[in-house]
Design a protein around this nucleic acid. Structure first.
Length: 284
DNA sequence: ACGAGCTCCTGCTTGC
DNA sequence: TGCAAGCAGGAGCTCG
């Protein structure tokens, strides 16, 4: 589902669609995706009219579209959110939730099947919406400091996968790229942060950066297909993932069968031999 | 502060 | 055939 590379793909696509465009009208078709706009759907529809978008920005998996008056339209894609640019009279695809009529005759559409995502207006949020301020820098941010984050990781006792999924430590990583990063680093997801050296933790963060950069680099078209075909993980099988979704298939390094294990109400994939728990932590 | 578990939500897949 | 359960998971929340 959308993690940093996918959200960045959406951000750069949106840039060409909304930058410099003025909003003529807004239509909320389902209230849930605007639940974080506290004044309600009616206010959301009215508040944006007549305002002009600047170039979209991103931190981790959060997107925001700055407005020329210093506020921002914030968006999170959640599990299944998509932005589409369509002609205003084009038929709505299923699960279309919010429409923005733009001054070039196009219509921006927010589509979200599962509605974990949402859009809302953030007063004064053009530079950094306050709803995003608690999110850590992501590995693509030039100010991202892997050594500083590594030092925080090794002071924690939680499993390393939980830690790299903690968006207040490092943002942008989701379940898929967490598993891919751990596979590259040959780490078991339950290895406590405190069992890592700073060097090893920083190495894991570098792997996270690299695997997401590779996805962003080669993934544009397959991501588009994913967003068209949101409802399954089928899109991911098209991609060159090394471990995620490969239950029972041979590890690309050692040939052992990849296992899928329950982790925090979701799944973790790992190679049982490349990514074993350290002996001193082995469970009965 | 930290760690862990729960909840939201829809639609496809699986199993009886 | 029909229905229910399982599964996908980002992030905010609560509880200990």
């Amino acid at each position: 589902m959308p993690e940093l590379p996918e959200v960045e793909t959406v951000r750069s696509g949106l840039a060409g669609v909304v930058t410099g465009r003025t909003v003529l009208a807004v239509h909320v078709l389902h209230p849930r995706p605007v639940r974080r706009h506290l004044p309600g759907p009616g206010d959301f529809e009215a508040a944006l009219v007549g305002r002009t978008f600047a170039e979209p920005r991103r931190r981790g998996k959060f997107l925001w579209l700055p407005l020329d008056d210093g506020d921002a339209l914030v968006a999170h894609l959640g599990m299944s959110g998509q932005f589409r640019s369509d002609s205003r009279d084009a038929p709505l695809q299923p699960n279309t939730r919010v429409l923005w009529d733009l001054d070039d005759g196009r219509q921006l559409r927010f589509v979200d099947q599962r509605m974990f995502g949402g859009v809302w207006l953030s007063a004064g949020g053009a530079v950094l919406p306050h709803e995003v301020a608690h999110i850590a820098l992501d590995p693509f941010d030039p100010r991202f400091d892997p050594d500083a984050v590594a030092h925080r990781i090794v002071r924690r006792t939680a499993g390393v996968k939980r830690l790299i999924l903690d968006q207040t430590l490092v943002s942008g990583i989701g379940n898929i790229y967490a598993d891919e990063s751990l596979w590259r680093a040959r780490l078991h997801y339950d290895t406590p942060g405190s069992r890592l050296t700073v060097r090893r933790a920083a190495g894991l963060l570098r792997h996270a950066h690299d695997v997401m950069a590779a996805s962003l680099g080669h993934g544009g078209t397959s991501f588009d297909r994913l967003y068209v075909d949101v409802n399954g993980s089928s899109g991911y099988h098209e991609r060159s993932l090394d471990v995620y979704g490969r239950e029972g298939l041979p590890c690309r390094r050692c040939g052992r069968g990849v296992v899928r294990e329950a982790f925090a109400n979701r799944s973790s994939y790992r190679c049982p031999s490349c990514q074993a728990l350290p002996d001193t932590l082995a469970r009965p």
